[in-house]
Computed example of a mutant assay.
Amino acid sequence: MQYWWLVIFDFPLFQLTVLTLIILIAYLFKLKVHSRFDQIFFLVLMGCLIFQLVKIFPFTPLADYEVLPPELNDEKRVLSLYTANVFQKNHSTDALLEEIKRYDPDFYVLTETNKRWTDIIIKNLKPSYAHMISIPLENTYGMLVGSKHPLHQSKVRYMVDDSIPSIHTKIILQKQDTIQLYAIHPRPPLPRHNPKSTGRNAELMKIAKLSRGSDYPVIVTGDFNDVAWSGTTALFQQMSGLLDMR
C-alpha cells in the first residue's frame, strides 16, 4: 500500500537524475570533498545517481526494445494503434483529429472523453472507424475506442470503482486473427480524494491476471497513471507476461 507522497517521486525520476548529476558535479569541482562528511555525502549522492540510472536506462535510446518492428510484409496481419489522453478540458480537438488522420492507425483508444469530445470524434472519424465503443463521462474517466476492424464480445467493466470503466474487446483482423484489447484508465493516487495507490494497483493486477489467462495475443493500453519504471508497472509486466513497447 503506497501513499501519494511516496508514489509521486516515481514521476519526475528523469528530472531528479539530472538534478543529482548537477549537484555531484558542482560538489566535486566547486565545493571540493575534504571532510569525512563530504566523502559520505558524495558517496550517498553517487549511490542515488546509480540507482536512478539503473531504473531509467531500459527506457533510454541506449537500451534495446522489447518489441521489435514487424518482419511481416502482410499488411493484413500487421496492426497499428494510437492512444492519447485528450485532457477533458482541452478544446484543441482539431489537433487530435489531424494527428489521428496523419498516422491512420487501425484503431485508437482515447481517455478523458466526455460527451463533447465523443460527439466531435464520432462525427469526424466514424466514416473511417466504423466500429466504436464510447463511454462519455464528465468525471475525466470517459473512454472511446474506434477501430477499422470488427470488435467482438465487447464489454464495459468496472474493475475496482463503479465510476471508472475499462473496455474489454476482441479485434478481428482481416485474416481472422484475433487480438484481445484491454483499454484502462485507473484512478491515480491524489492528496485529497485518493491518497493511496491501492485502487490503481488493484485494477492493474486484475488486468494482468486476465492478460495472463487469455487465449489470444493481448494489448493493454490507455492511461495507466503510472510511469514505465515504477515497481507497480514492473509487477504488472511480470504477472501479465506482456512486453513493453516503450
Rank of each mutant, 00 (worst) to 15 (best):
P12D: 04
P12L: 04
P12I: 10
P12E: 08
L13M: 09
L13T: 08
L13I: 13
F14M: 11
Q15I: 02
Q15H: 12
L16Q: 04
T17D: 02
T17W: 11
L19N: 07
L21W: 08
L21N: 05
I22T: 10
I22P: 10
I22Y: 06
I23C: 11
L24I: 13
L24E: 00
A26V: 14
Y27I: 02
Y27E: 01
F29Y: 14
K30T: 08
K30N: 12
K30W: 15
L31D: 11
K32N: 12
V33K: 05
V33Y: 07
H34L: 07
H34M: 06
S35R: 09
S35Q: 08
R36Y: 12
R36M: 09
D38M: 05
F41C: 03
L43M: 06
L43A: 14
V44A: 11
V44C: 09
L45W: 02
L45M: 12
M46D: 00
C48E: 02
C48R: 06
L49H: 07
L49V: 04
L53R: 00
V54G: 00
V54F: 03
V54C: 04
K55W: 13
K55A: 11
F57E: 02
T60F: 08
P61G: 03
A63L: 05
A63W: 07
A63I: 02
D64R: 15
E66Q: 15
V67D: 01
P69A: 06
P70T: 09
E71G: 13
L72S: 15
N73F: 12
N73M: 08
D74H: 10
E75S: 14
E75H: 07
E75C: 09
K76Q: 15
R77F: 09
L79D: 02
S80N: 07
L81N: 10
Y82Q: 02
Y82H: 05
Q88L: 10
Q88R: 13
N90C: 09
N90H: 02
S92I: 00
T93N: 14
D94F: 11
D94R: 14
D94E: 15
A95Y: 12
L96V: 13
L97K: 11
L97R: 03
L97C: 13
E98H: 13
R102F: 13
R102P: 03
D104L: 06
D104Y: 12
P105R: 04
D106P: 10
F107M: 07
F107Q: 03
Y108Q: 06
L110E: 08
L110A: 01
E112G: 02
E112Q: 13
E112S: 08
T113P: 06
T113W: 00
K115R: 14
K115F: 11
R116K: 14
R116N: 14
W117E: 05
T118R: 07
T118D: 11
D119M: 08
D119C: 01
I120F: 04
I120N: 00
I120R: 09
I122V: 14
K123I: 03
P127T: 00
S128Q: 15
S128H: 11
H131Q: 04
M132Y: 10
M132I: 15
I135G: 04
I135F: 03
I135Y: 05
I135V: 15
